[in-house]
Amino acid sequence: MQKRPILLTMLDVVSVIMLAISTYLALFYAPTELVMGDVQRVFYFHIGTAWTALLGFIFAAGAGITYLVTKDLRWDRVGVAAVEVSTVFFLITIMLGSIWAYPAWNTWWTWDPRLTSAAITELIYAAYFMLRQGIDDVEKRARFGAIYTIIGGISAPLTFMSIRWAQSRTIHPVIIGAENATAKGDFSMTPDMLTAFLFALLAFTIIFIDLLWNRIRLESKQSEVDQLKMKVTN
């Protein structure tokens, strides 16, 4: 078994510190939004996790393409790791969005284009794990998984763009880019809010890289254990 790299341990520590600072900035440093009150503070983690999750899905698609070109199983492990961490982060995004929606929209859930596309994306990646579990052959599983992540990866930019393309049909606020006139719960960011927001993006990016690295190592370890099992049984 490979020894744990010192850089990974350092990244673990940095991630915890970044998460603590980001929480402080979101809860105490950023001012309270006047119309929505304190619930607006979930926005920092909501966007932070959404950003990294969607990037992670695209990264997994990239790993899938690389696997299909190189046939190197290490890229399959990278793809699985990226999808798993991204799915967890995207689940947090959806749950935080729902909690924010109740006081802002007076409902936990509505079939808005953004919410619908986000739910579909999460379900696509939940199904990815079911697909993998159903295939025993390693090469076949990696090939099917790669194709799936490439097709699934299309849902990430679609989810991001859904509130920009369907502005007349969505009530979801657009924070980055043009404002949406029909949005409910929209707000303008003050400089302190912007600081907390940008720091959350950075913090969650670092946390994502840290978790991804840990997850890739876990997948490599699983592969080593599987090889040992084969040796023992033969």
């Binding site: 929505m36 304190d38 619930v39 983690f45 190592r217 370890k221």
Partner: peptide
């Protein structure tokens, strides 16, 4: 300004619990 702090607490609790569970699952699997 409405008092929506309960929702904020719920949101951060959910975020930390999910992240904590995931980290714990990584640790246990490892």
């Amino acid at each position: 300004t409405p008092d929506t702090s309960a929702f904020m607490i719920a949101g951060y609790t959910v975020a930390f619990v999910v992240m904590g569970l995931y980290v714990a699952s990584l640790f246990i699997r490892n």
